[in-house]
Design a protein around this nucleic acid. Structure first.
Length: 256
DNA sequence: ATGGTGGCTTAGCCA
């Protein structure tokens, strides 16, 4: 079972790049973030044509997450519990082939002095509480998405320069660790403990060409999913295309 | 150095 996650920064702007990638890589499941459109504006046909079922939520111009799957999508949950005031389209989960998969778009945080920053930290707390429940339910679990945090110095292009900035602030890294430490595994680090690789590069200042990236897109796996983990790949090819997303997909393969 | 890029939606926000 090949599962991928990709922040596409508008699905309507990215249809040719995403469909070409699906045809080449043939994942069983693709988790999308930042689709940036209402459900009725999501271009479903090109993906249904490639034999994907789709579960999605969205809002105008912001956020939006989806699950594309060749197998049937069952028991969809489309909101992260814990904050009745939060109506943002940032979380969807479902069961596919016996695996509980989730697509999460953690708030960016905007700036350290913005109210969005404590909202981001609280979102991590809610995700931890919910993931704990999912672990207790016992199904193999894979939570993929844009976590908007680079966990360690090996996940940023310049740890000294970036220390304390958004997506690499100690408070965010601590939230990441307390999430992982409930008993989850960073799939990429499980197969590549030392490798420096990134999943996001700013559009500005030739960041991709200069290698100025961050690893902020992750898969967190339950022990039973980790037992089945064969490979994890960050595929930079889509980031090299014309009119790319600023993120590139992460792909992991679980034994059947 | 307070810019730089991109995708919304339409000049301002968010990333």
């Amino acid at each position: 079972m090949k599962i991928a996650t990709w922040n596409v920064n508008s699905i309507r702007a990215r249809v040719p790049i995403v469909t070409a990638w699906l045809e080449r890589v043939q994942p069983d499941v693709l988790l999308l973030q930042e689709t940036k459109c209402l459900p009725e504006k999501f271009p479903t046909e090109p993906f249904e044509h490639l034999h994907y079922n789709i579960a999605l939520i969205g809002e105008p111009s912001l956020n939006g997450v989806a699950i594309l799957s060749k197998s049937p999508i069952e028991d969809v949950v489309d909101h992260l519990p814990g904050d009745p005031a939060d109506q943002e389209a940032r979380y969807i989960e479902a069961t596919v082939d016996g695996v509980r998969v989730a697509s999460v778009y953690v708030p960016n945080g905007t700036a350290l002095d913005s109210p969005r920053f404590p909202f981001k930290l609280a979102f991590f707390d809610r995700l931890r509480a919910h993931a704990k429940t999912l672990l207790e339910e016992g199904q193999p679990l894979a939570i993929g998405g844009d976590y908007n945090v680079a966990p360690t110095p090996a996940d940023v292009y310049d740890a000294k320069e970036l220390e304390g900035t958004i997506c690499y602030h100690p408070a965010e890294r601590e939230k990441w660790r307390t999430l992982v430490n409930i008993g989850l595994y960073d799939a990429y680090r499980a197969v590549a403990p030392e490798t420096i690789a990134f999943s996001w590069w700013h559009y500005q200042a030739r960041s991709f060409q200069l290698g100025h990236g961050l690893r902020i897109d992750h898969f967190l796996l339950s022990p039973s999913a980790l037992d089945r983990l064969e490979t994890v790949e960050i595929d930079e090819q889509p980031r090299r295309q014309k009119t790319p997303s600023d993120h590139t997909p992460v792909l992991c393969s679980l034994a059947a």
